[in-house]
Design a protein around this nucleic acid. Structure first.
Length: 303
DNA sequence: TTCCAGGAGAGAG
DNA sequence: CTCTCTCATGGA
């Protein structure tokens, strides 16, 4: 069978990358949607399956659908327009973060699709990475649209309307637990435009965070994740159990509230504290006992 | 069996 | 304002 040349023209390259590592970026816990197959990553962005592969300073991108994602869109998604070297230089203020930066040099903060990020981090509360990924996959399989690319199948993340129509019980059946009503509530606010996503994108960090926290199931931490992983507000600092442990152990040397950690960290790392946070978080996850052994002793001592 | 996970809401003080 | 308890779920 003769292959049509046109249908093979879905390939695109981004060349001459500097300071970018695809693996560190996609496997650092900020997105729950990328799957590694051999040395390529498959994910769903803007309604199509993307297959991205990095070799040295080049990205090779293929996609399902009739036309590939635009280069500016993908560059923005991967945060390639920032000067990472100067950001990392600004937050590289001690040997601890220096170690993390050195280990995961090239990891960038994604600018993910807003609704999917809102929904994903509502589901993330008091939950672990594996289960979050699995819940999101199930929701997408049941309420998203099926896509295929060269034998690989995946699904778009459900639209707000699709989740509203599904109802709380069907959402619960995807394994969300008690977060089902939070997700349904957020979906209805977005679909009836009580929360306007385009407006949210125009807001500054403080306004956007406050607006997000009006939704049920979104507190400070989840709002900061959305601001950092979707809206590009690099001063956002999500304080989860890992970040709390790192700061209590390494920097503050005592038990501390999220408020105290925020105040210290923003003063200590400056305007790019969000990037600092991601390097510390990912380093801690890949180096058990880096911040943990001491932390246990700390807790024992205080109680 | 108990503990933990990229926490938030409700209630008490 | 801050502290505590509870909320599904599954893997360790």
């Amino acid at each position: 069978m003769k292959m049509d040349n046109v249908t093979n023209q879905r390939q695109m390259c981004i060349q001459h990358l500097s300071n970018f590592n695809l693996q560190y970026t996609l496997e650092s816990g900020q997105s729950f949607r990328w799957n590694r197959v051999d040395d390529a990553y498959y994910g769903v962005v803007e309604g199509r399956i993307l297959r991205i592969q990095q070799s040295d300073d080049t990205l090779i991108i293929e996609s399902s659908g009739n036309e590939p994602i635009s280069k500016p869109h993908l560059s923005h998604y991967l945060d390639l327009n920032r000067e990472l070297a100067s950001i990392l230089a600004a937050v590289n203020v001690d040997a601890y973060i220096g170690q993390a930066i050195n280990r995961f040099w090239g990891m960038r903060l994604l600018n993910q699709e807003l609704w999917e990020t809102i929904a994903s981090f509502i589901l993330s509360q008091n939950n672990n990475m594996g289960r979050i990924r699995s819940i999101i996959r199930t929701l997408s399989e049941r309420f998203g649209s099926r896509l295929e690319f060269e034998g690989y199948a995946d699904y778009t993340f459900p639209t707000p309307q699709a989740l509203v129509d599904a109802g709380v019980d069907e959402i619960f059946d995807c394994g969300t637990g008690y977060r089902a009503s939070y997700l349904w509530h957020a979906a209805s606010k977005v679909s009836n435009e009580e929360l306007k996503l385009d407006t949210l994108k125009q807001m500054n960090y403080t306004e956007a965070k406050h607006e997000l926290m009006q939704l049920k199931g979104i507190g400070e931490k989840v709002a900061d994740c959305i601001c950092l992983f979707s809206l590009g507000h690099l001063t956002a600092l999500p304080v989860d159990v890992w970040i709390k442990r790192i700061f209590e152990t390494i920097y503050l040397r005592k038990r501390a509230t999220a408020r105290e950690i925020q105040e210290f960290a923003k003063n200590y790392f400056g305007e790019f504290v969000g990037y600092a946070q991601q390097y510390l978080f990912h380093y801690a996850q890949n180096h058990p006992n880096w911040a943990d052994a001491e932390h246990l002793a700390l807790r024992y001592k205080e109680r």
